[in-house]
């Protein structure tokens, strides 16, 4: 830095705000995340109307009741109910840009899972598209949703709109 640059008046002040949290997942999300660590997708059923929540937060937001029954194991495939195209890189997603961020309704679930779509072009992604999970190699698994690297199209016929319209 030259002498004249050094002597420029100070015009800007950096004032970063950094908040360090320890996030506690709680009983229900911990069980869900540990299941991911074993390659399983666990939902839970509302005792009032039988809707299957995935992931389960341990209570039903609609009926205000605890969900304490046996977990419901779900398959790692489902239907894209909606999506958006992402053109901004993100530190923890290793897909090439642009890619689709998707909401997946797993078969047998009544709530949607946020994930990303791989092995597909953004020109092909659409509502009703059938997808399946692509897992990381097992030795890289952690208690994390990130054990699923992405979803990819299965090539099955689309799910009819009427079958998922309640879940968008």
């Amino acid at each position: 830095m030259s002498e004249s640059e050094e002597r420029k008046p100070v015009e800007v002040l950096r004032t970063p705000v950094v908040l360090d949290y320890t996030y506690s997942a709680g009983q229900s999300s911990s069980r869900h995340l540990r299941a991911f660590g074993k390659g399983k997708l666990l939902g839970q059923r509302c005792p009032v109307d039988g809707r299957v929540y995935f992931p389960s937060r341990g209570s039903c937001p609609q009926h205000g009741v605890p969900i304490e029954g046996e977990p419901v194991e779900l398959p790692d495939r489902g239907t894209i109910v909606t999506y958006s195209v992402n053109r901004v890189p993100s530190e923890n997603i290793d897909l090439e840009l642009p890619y689709a961020a998707i909401q997946v309704l797993l078969d047998g679930a009544d709530t949607i899972l946020f994930h990303v779509l791989g092995e597909s072009s953004i020109d092909d992604v659409h509502m009703g598209m059938r997808v399946e999970a692509v897992w990381k190699p097992e030795e890289e698994w952690d208690d994390s949703v990130a054990n699923i690297r992405y979803f990819r199209p299965t090539g099955e016929p689309d799910t009819p709109f009427d079958q998922y319209k309640e879940h968008i």
């Binding site: 800007v12 705000v17 950094v18 908040l19 360090d20 996030y23 009983q27 069980r31 540990r34």
Partner: peptide, 22 residues
Amino acid sequence: MPDVTHSLTAAHQLAYTYKRSL
């Protein structure tokens, strides 16, 4: 039935890189 496993925890940092004009 509540189980007795401990809750998972993870570090989570929220940071805003503010600059202000003086």
